[in-house]
């Protein structure tokens, strides 16, 4: 007999639907049959706890991974990883990837006519500390065109991947920048109908983490699913 305490389910509008026709690639890939509701079992509430031994010295400083310095605006992105109840999520792996300052990814499939930067890979990783804090130094990514619709441009963003304490807290998302004029036109950002949930993907400029004469600071807290309060009644 096992008593499993499951994870909370999302409130309406706070997470995207799989089928979101304005994002054209979802049309042939989103499942069309209803998903099967699965009360959480031991297989769901457990999950991989790993990564702390995979972190190298410059993995959270994307400006120091090559012989020279990358071109672009240096920024510091930091914040906390919390659960729905505001508790920090310690020692969890964060992976991050992004375009360079010209809006070009170091990826064979990116054919955007913008220069690669020999001093910028655009990949980093870290683990949160005991209070759930993380910090990256990087370059502000550029906007780039894509072919979803006429004159489509992705707003500058940084991809984040997180694990948290179970397979149910797994999250891959994107961080955006405040005041970006492209946000109202982006079907990926706007797939979230709840405005508070949508806006929580936008980081805040932060003078406290800005380093004089060096780099602007942006703060972004990430919230993972929280656990139900009471055990599931068997």
């Amino acid at each position: 007999m096992t008593n499993v305490v499951g994870y909370k389910r999302p409130r309406a509008g706070t997470q995207p639907n799989y089928l979101h026709p304005p994002y054209q690639s979802s049309i042939k890939r989103a499942p069309r049959k209803p998903l099967v509701l699965l009360p959480h079992t031991l297989s769901e509430v457990t999950g991989p706890l790993f990564g702390h031994d995979l972190i190298g010295q410059n993995d959270n400083d994307l400006t120091k991974q090559h012989a020279g310095e990358p071109i672009g605006e240096r920024i510091i992105v930091s914040g906390r990883v919390l659960d729905e109840d505001g508790r920090p999520v310690p020692r969890t792996l964060i992976e991050l990837w992004q375009a360079n300052s010209t809006g070009r990814y170091r990826h064979a499939l990116d054919q955007h006519d913008a220069p690669l930067d020999p001093n910028f890979t655009g990949y980093g990783r870290t683990v949160t500390d005991a209070e759930g804090r993380y910090r990256f130094v990087t370059i502000k990514p550029g906007a780039y065109p894509w072919r979803n619709h006429h004159n489509a441009w992705r707003p500058p963003h940084i991809h984040f991947s997180l694990f948290g304490p179970s397979f149910m807290t797994r999250l891959v998302t994107q961080m955006y920048f405040p005041g970006d004029p492209l946000l109202p036109f982006d079907p990926i950002f706007n797939c979230v109908t709840d405005q508070r949930a949508r806006d929580s993907m936008i980081s805040s400029f932060d003078l406290d983490t800005t380093i004089p004469e060096f780099a602007l600071g942006y703060r972004w807290d990430i919230v993972l699913r929280g656990r139900n309060a009471t055990p599931f009644e068997e």
Binding site: P10, R11, T14, Q15, P16, Y23, S25, G51, L54, L82, D83, E84, D85, G86, E95, L96, W97, Y105, R106, H107, L109, D110, T121, G122, Y123, R125, H159, S161, L171, V172, T173, Q174, I188, F189, C191, V192, D194, R196, A197, R198, S200, M201, I222, V223, L224, R225, G226
Partner: peptide, 23 residues
């Protein structure tokens, strides 16, 4: 305190850059 979990977004076409270093 009750926070809204951060919304999910697609891994996009360049997922390999961020997710296959740990394969």
């Amino acid at each position: 305190m009750s926070l809204i979990p951060t919304a999910s977004q697609t891994v996009g076409p360049y997922l390999h850059l961020g997710l296959t270093p740990i394969t």
